[in-house]
Simulated assay, not measured.
Amino acid sequence: MAILAITGRMTPQMASTPRLPGEQSGVGERSPARRILDERFARGELDADQYREHLRVLGE
């Protein structure tokens, strides 16, 4: 942020949205429902069969 304080301008890197490794950007970005589903699966709230069924229902 020092660049912003000195120049008053944002660089393209500063304006970009931070993403987790493996996340896509732009076209094809995951929906909020898909992100929640992925998080629930990662926490162990859903088993693989439940996860796949929910993906099917979401159409992803």
Rank of each mutant, 00 (worst) to 15 (best):
M1A: 15
M1K: 10
A2S: 11
A2Q: 10
I3G: 06
I3A: 11
I3P: 04
L4R: 03
A5D: 04
A5M: 10
I6V: 12
I6W: 15
T7K: 08
T7D: 05
G8R: 07
R9P: 03
R9N: 13
R9Q: 10
R9E: 13
M10I: 12
M10G: 15
T11E: 09
T11K: 09
T11I: 15
P12Y: 11
P12T: 10
Q13V: 11
Q13S: 13
M14K: 04
M14W: 05
M14N: 10
A15V: 15
S16R: 10
S16Y: 07
S16P: 02
T17E: 12
T17D: 11
P18I: 01
P18W: 01
P18F: 02
R19I: 14
L20C: 07
L20Q: 07
P21R: 03
P21H: 03
E23K: 04
Q24T: 15
Q24R: 15
Q24W: 14
S25K: 11
S25H: 12
S25Y: 08
G26W: 01
G28A: 01
G28T: 01
G28W: 00
G28S: 02
E29T: 07
E29I: 11
R30E: 07
S31F: 12
S31G: 11
S31R: 14
P32R: 13
P32S: 13
A33K: 09
A33F: 06
R34W: 04
R34I: 08
R34V: 06
R35A: 08
D38R: 01
D38L: 01
E39I: 07
E39P: 13
R40W: 09
R40C: 06
A42C: 05
R43S: 04
E45I: 02
L46F: 06
D47G: 03
D47P: 00
A48G: 09
D49Q: 08
D49H: 03
Q50C: 05
Y51M: 02
Y51L: 02
Y51I: 01
R52H: 08
R52A: 12
E53V: 09
E53H: 04
H54C: 05
H54Y: 09
H54A: 09
H54K: 12
H54I: 08
H54S: 10
L55R: 08
L55F: 00
L55W: 01
R56Y: 09
R56Q: 11
R56K: 06
R56E: 13
L58P: 01
L58V: 07
G59W: 04
G59K: 04
G59S: 05
